[in-house]
Design a protein around this nucleic acid. Structure first.
Length: 868
RNA sequence: GGGCGGUUAGCUCAGCUGGCUAGAGCAUCUCGUUUACACCGAGAGGGUCAGGAGUUCGAAUCUCUUACCGCCUACCA
């Protein structure tokens, strides 16, 4: 596949080289994980499965490449790398994309239509077609399959070294089975329970959401000052509320116990305007004296403080907001909707029924104004409101039955686990710990959605036709995976579904995190290798999902097997817009990863990613990719040059370099090289790939600018074996050291090396060893340093004189100590060559410090026109 | 309100446990066809290391403090 001769006449061409590399690696199965190796000899990566909903963006390539660089380094340390890849294709993002793409919606009540074929029509304005759950899931699968193919190509083009045999999907049967097993295991261990309770509810998607999926948004609202009367007196007080539409669900009035303004009211009852509900006025610590008017109403439910107060006091639940965010029908005069004047209450409430909360707010303000309750005009404020991160309407607290994993009692264990994990950068551990300590709700894992992992659960239906949620029937582990809507629990028949004395399925699906928190276990399941177990070596991920993915993965590993899931968490930064805002797809000028690979080459894009440190958000800077391209081009040309030198020398084959490298200058250079290699190796072992790249890259430019210039004429001379052997060793080292970062060019030059042909990939070779340089008797670096310095001074003199570097030098006077002078004598020939000194131009003067005192050029020199 | 990070050249960023005249790339300017490389080479200019105080023989680096930027978090009436 690779050419026999070096590419002496070629120019660097990324497309050719990268296609060749990709094909070679696939044929050679370079990235195949070796299951015969021990755990100790295996490096295990818990790769993040990207969400398959639309397209990859450059942030993916950025962080995934960083991981790939580490994977390639680890592979070169002689380990087999367990590097799976997965697609996160279940869950809401996929559903939304499928709905829009095929213009369909899921209606679980419809029967399956085997003839239905989803079709994508551009700008389809027709109403959304309703399809059965099974049809909907099939449509999801069609779209995710084609998206995944595109993702796969991009990752391969970027040179990522996953073992595609270990590919998994989060909606695949194996994953469903594992998620359901996880559920049953945690249920049996007592960590999971279904609870009927007020839960944060998204009215748009009509599903419960977990604390981790909630975000605050600053939105505009209005303070409405409402006058409340006190029962049996002429007393009144003013409440400032942003949610007057919750007035009908008022269950109490609270003020701070120390608030002098309201102390006299405690124990009395207030009359809720419009509905004439008599509610207790009680002291509560959670009321703040200087907020609003200091006195406020508690409704079911405005916020989580209301929920807490409601729970504490055992007050009745007055649910007035429906699952779809509209005002439900309620009857005043019947429990719990007590009223002193049910007729008036019902009359007022009837005007709200069926309205959205927003409409109801406007309506009730109208009523309050007419009623004289509203004092002055509503005052505009901006305040934080909780939203589901994917939703557009504020969350409501709605009471419903949901499955919860009890994490609150595990806080301490979670903190401890977080401390056992090595976070890179270290301060990311704070994020984890802060979140663990701040947790105030158990993990709600049920979602009222369709494209997800169903709960392996049914419920018995009593003789009276009522569903018994307190005695769920769990699937037998042997049955898994199950779809309770289709499958039947052991001991029942399909005919009993939905009948008295029979059973019904749990309709919900699991939170997508409940599945992705199992990625280590899913990957292990793929490997089917009993040698492997938790913890993995590393989990790469971004910092925005520490509270979700990282947190839940730690939780599940802890609850299932009392272990941490991985030894290290490598937290990547974000790519920011040039204006330092977080990059978002909605911003128009989308630069896709493939586009970047096409215009700069994969190696250059990888270089850009590898330059950024872990955890550091970086502005997107295309110039860095140009810099990468320059580097790759330079590697190509430097190798080409050295190949040429070697081909023209007497030493053409790989040999015992130590035997040949005798020139002190070469030994001195090899010391510099081994120093950089040592630093890079140390950095890599601490996952600091960026520092490793920096060390290797700067030494490489030093090599091209200085060492190569210094030795090249000696390398072409009669007595060239030391120089040639040194160059061979140098290039060998650079090829290997660059391989994790720029794998395509590394493979190309490795395969076309003139002095040794191998049929194995450079990526299965061993990382160069620092100890090897001892065997080469790498010398003291001072000779190389001083000669480089002198050469630089001579260049400066020529540049300052506006003369070409070919200009002969007739005198160089150097001040040096006796000791250094004897060192410099060893490099005399090289100095004369690189500076184009005339014989005897080099003179020394005794002195303490090294200095170039004088450089005199042959001012009469006229360069001959160069032959082309 | 609490926590965490950041502030170094016009731009993007390095500077490890305090130690040569604070670095790189890009950009700017000057020059140059050298046995690979014009996707090139040589060089120059450009910094009160956000401000202040302290520790020290010595601070970009350690301590305190102020300002600004960003992220996370918080019961949001």
């Amino acid at each position: 596949m690779y050419k026999d001769s070096p590419f002496l006449d070629d120019r660097y061409d990324a497309v050719t080289i990268e296609n060749r590399g990709k094909k070679f690696w696939e044929e050679k199965k370079v990235y195949q994980y070796d299951a015969t190796r021990s755990r100790q000899d295996t490096f295990m990566i818990d790769t993040p499965p990207p969400t398959v909903s639309g397209s990859l963006h450059i942030g993916h390539i950025f962080s995934y490449t960083q991981t790939d660089v580490i994977a390639r380094f680890q592979r070169m340390t002689g380990k087999t790398v367990f590097y799976p890849i997965g697609w996160d294709d279940n869950g809401l993002p996929t559903e939304r994309r499928v709905q829009n793409y095929f213009n369909i919606a899921c209606n679980p009540n419809l029967p399956y239509d085997p003839n239905f074929k989803p079709e994508h029509i551009e700008n389809d304005k027709s109403p959304r077609k309703e399809v059965s759950r099974k049809n909907f899931i099939e449509a999801c699968e069609i779209l995710t399959n084609s998206d995944e193919k595109i993702f796969e190509d991009v990752f391969k083009n970027a040179g990522h070294s996953y073992d595609w045999n270990l590919k998994y999907t989060t909606i695949g049967n194996d994953t469903i089975k594992l998620s359901q097993e996880s559920f049953i295991d945690l249920y049996e261990k007592g960590y999971i329970q279904s609870v009927e309770a007020p839960t944060m509810w998204d009215t748009t998607f009509q599903t419960a959401v977990a604390q981790a999926e909630v975000e605050d948004r600053e939105v505009e609202g209005f303070f409405h000052d409402l006058k409340f009367k006190v029962e049996g007196s002429d007393d009144t007080f003013i409440i400032s509320t942003t949610r007057p539409e919750l007035l009908p669900a008022c269950i109490g009035i609270v003020a701070h116990p120390d608030d002098e303004r309201y102390k006299h009211l405690f124990g009395k009852k207030a009359i809720v305007p419009l509905f004439d509900i008599a509610v207790d006025i009680v002291p509560s610590e959670h009321a703040e004296i200087d907020k609003g008017t200091g006195i406020m109403m508690v409704c079911t439910f405005g916020d989580s403080a209301d929920v807490a107060w409601w729970k504490k006091t055992g007050s009745p639940l007055k649910q007035i907001i429906d699952m779809d965010g509209r005002m439900m029908k309620v009857q005043y005069g019947t429990y719990p909707f007590d009223s002193l004047n049910p007729e008036k209450a019902n009359q007022n409430y009837s005007q709200l029924v069926g309205l959205t909360t927003k409409q109801a707010k406007a309506k009730i303000v109208e009523l309050l104004r007419a009623d004289g309750t509203l004092q002055g005009e509503p005052r505009r404020i901006v305040h934080p409101v909780k939203f589901y991160e994917k939703g557009n309407l504020p969350l409501e607290f709605v009471s419903s039955r949901q499955w919860f994993i009890h994490l609150l009692p595990e806080k301490e264990a979670m903190v401890k686990a977080g401390r056992e994990i090595g976070w890179k950068p270290a301060h990311m551990q704070h994020r984890f710990e802060e979140w663990a300590l701040g947790l105030n709700q158990d993990w709600c894992i049920s979602r009222q959605r369709f494209f997800g992992v169903p709960f392996p659960v049914w419920y018995p239906v009593n003789a009276d036709g009522k569903t018994d949620y307190d005695h769920p029937i769990l699937a037998d582990r042997k049955q898994l995976p199950v779809d309770p809507a289709v499958d039947v629990p052991n001991g029942y028949k399909e005919e009993q579904r939905g009948c008295a004395g029979g059973f019904v399925a749990d309709k919900d699906v699991m939170d997508t995190w409940a599945t992705s928190a199992l990625t280590p276990q899913i990957a292990l399941d793929k490997a089917k290798n009993p040698n492997l177990s938790l913890p993995f070596d590393v989990r790469p991920q971004a910092h925005d999902i520490i509270r979700t993915w990282a947190f839940y993965t730690v939780a599940k590993a802890l609850l299932h097997s009392k272990t941490i899931p991985w030894k290290e968490a490598l937290i990547s930064g974000f790519i920011l817009d040039p204006d330092r805002k977080k990059m978002s797809k909605s911003k128009g000028n989308v630069i896709t990863p493939q586009h970047l690979i096409d215009s700069y080459g994969a190696d250059s894009v990888r270089y850009w990613a590898a330059r950024a440190r872990l955890g550091v958000d970086t502005a997107f800077e295309e110039q860095i990719m140009s810099q990468g391209k320059k580097l790759v081009n330079k590697i190509f040309n430097a190798c080409k040059f050295v190949f040429n030198i070697v081909a023209n020398s007497s030493l053409k084959e790989e040999a015992n370099y130590a035997q040949y490298i005798q020139n002190p200058m070469d030994k001195s250079w090899l010391r510099k090289l081994s120093d950089s290699l040592e630093y890079a190796t140390k950095s890599f072992n601490q996952y600091d790939y960026a520092a490793a790249l920096d060390a290797i890259e700067s030494r490489f430019w030093d090599f091209c600018d200085n060492y190569l210039e210094i030795v090249k004429s000696r390398a072409y001379s009669e007595d060239n074996t030391s120089a040639v052997a040194s160059l061979m060793k140098t290039i060998d080292t650079f090829i290997l050291a660059f391989a994790p970062f720029v794998p395509f060019i590394a493979e190309e030059v490795y395969q076309t090396r003139t002095w040794k042909k191998g049929d194995e990939s450079v990526h299965n070779q061993n990382w160069p060893k620092v100890e090897d340089f001892e065997a080469l008797q790498a010398g003291d670096s001072s000779l190389y340093d001083t000669v480089s310095m002198i050469a630089s001074e001579i260049r400066k003199a020529k540049t300052a004189a506006n003369k070409t570097q070919r200009t002969p030098v007739v005198k160089v006077e150097i001040e040096a100590s006796e000791k250094l002078r004897s060192v410099l004598e060893m490099g005399k020939g090289d100095i004369e060559n690189v500076g184009r000194l005339t014989p005897d131009a080099l003179t020394f003067k005794e002195g303490k410090e090294l200095k170039v005192l004088d450089v005199q050029l042959d001012m009469d020199f006229v360069p001959e026109p160069k032959k082309k």
